[in-house]
Simulated assay, not measured.
Amino acid sequence: MLVRAVKAVALLSTGLLAGAFGYGAVNVAYAFRAVPLDVRFTFHTALMQVNGPVMQTTMGLAVLGSLLLAVVSRGVPRLLAAGAAVLALASFLITRFGNVPINGQIKQWAVTSAPPDHAAILQRWETFHVLRTSAAFIAFLLVVLLATGLGDRRGKSGTVR
C-alpha cells in the first residue's frame, strides 16, 4: 500500500510539473511574443507572483516523491526513480539560478523600460525554460515507466521492490 501511494505522489507531482512547464513553453511563451513588450512585462511579472509558490511546491513534491520512490524501490526501478529525483531537482536549480534572476529584471522593466539587450536576456530566459521543461518531462517519463512496470526488468509482475 505504501509503495502505491508513493508511486502515485511521484507520478502526480512529476506530471503536474512537466505539464505546467510544457504549457508555458507551448502556449505562454508564444503569447508573450505576440504582444507589445510592456504588456508582456506586466503579465510576466503578475504570472511569476502567482507561479512562484505554486511551482516551487510542485518542484519540491516532484523531488520528494521521486526520492521516496527510489527509497522504496530496488534494482533498475530505484535507479530510474533516483534519476527522476535528480531531474526534478535540476528543474528547480535551473529555475532558481536561471529564470528567477531574469524574472527580477523583467519586474523592473515593467515599471521602467527594457535595456537595449533585452532580446538577448529574454532569449536566455527561454533557453532556461526549455532546459527545465525538458528535465521535468524526462523525470515524468521515468516515473511513468516505473508506474506502468516498463522500468522493471523482471517482467510480468511490474512490482517495485
Results as ranks from 00 to 15, higher is better:
residue 156 K to V: 11
residue 84 A to Y: 00
residue 110 A to L: 07
residue 145 L to R: 06
residue 135 A to C: 07
residue 42 T to Y: 02
residue 132 R to D: 00
residue 132 R to L: 01
residue 144 V to M: 05
residue 105 Q to Y: 06
residue 90 A to E: 06
residue 19 G to N: 08
residue 16 L to D: 13
residue 136 A to M: 03
residue 131 L to S: 08
residue 123 Q to C: 08
residue 104 G to P: 03
residue 93 L to Y: 05
residue 160 V to H: 02
residue 153 R to I: 09
residue 134 S to F: 12
residue 83 G to Q: 00
residue 59 M to I: 15
residue 75 G to H: 05
residue 155 G to A: 06
residue 160 V to T: 14
residue 8 A to C: 08
residue 151 G to F: 04
residue 87 L to W: 07
residue 135 A to D: 03
residue 93 L to S: 05
residue 17 L to M: 08
residue 52 G to V: 09
residue 71 V to K: 00
residue 63 V to T: 11
residue 98 G to C: 10
residue 114 A to F: 11
residue 95 T to C: 12
residue 50 V to Q: 07
residue 142 L to R: 07
residue 92 F to L: 15
residue 106 I to E: 14
residue 126 E to N: 10
residue 44 H to G: 10
residue 125 W to T: 09
residue 139 A to Q: 04
residue 76 V to R: 13
residue 3 V to R: 15
residue 106 I to Y: 07
residue 73 S to R: 01
residue 71 V to G: 04
residue 14 T to H: 05
residue 160 V to E: 01
residue 67 L to K: 03
residue 21 F to P: 00
residue 4 R to V: 10
residue 18 A to F: 05
residue 116 P to T: 14
residue 12 L to I: 15
residue 46 A to P: 04
residue 24 G to I: 10
residue 24 G to Q: 11
residue 2 L to S: 13
residue 157 S to G: 14
residue 104 G to F: 09
residue 99 N to R: 01
residue 133 T to S: 12
residue 51 N to E: 12
residue 148 T to I: 02
residue 78 R to S: 09
residue 53 P to W: 02
residue 79 L to H: 11
residue 97 F to A: 10
residue 91 S to G: 04
residue 72 V to S: 04
residue 124 R to D: 13
residue 34 A to L: 13
residue 133 T to R: 00
residue 5 A to E: 10
residue 46 A to M: 13
residue 104 G to R: 02
residue 94 I to M: 03
residue 31 A to I: 10
residue 103 N to D: 12
residue 99 N to G: 03
residue 14 T to K: 03
residue 33 R to W: 08
residue 24 G to H: 13
residue 95 T to I: 04
residue 37 L to H: 04
residue 68 L to N: 01
residue 123 Q to D: 15
residue 78 R to P: 01
residue 110 A to Y: 01
residue 146 L to R: 01
residue 42 T to V: 07
residue 37 L to Y: 08
residue 44 H to A: 12
residue 54 V to H: 07
residue 84 A to T: 03
residue 99 N to K: 02
residue 102 I to A: 10
residue 78 R to E: 00
residue 70 A to S: 11
residue 33 R to Q: 15
residue 42 T to H: 06
residue 154 R to F: 02
residue 2 L to K: 02
residue 100 V to M: 05
residue 143 V to N: 05
residue 137 F to Y: 11
residue 160 V to N: 04
residue 38 D to S: 12
residue 72 V to W: 01
residue 153 R to P: 14
residue 44 H to Q: 14
residue 1 M to S: 11
residue 73 S to A: 13
residue 104 G to N: 12
residue 105 Q to L: 15
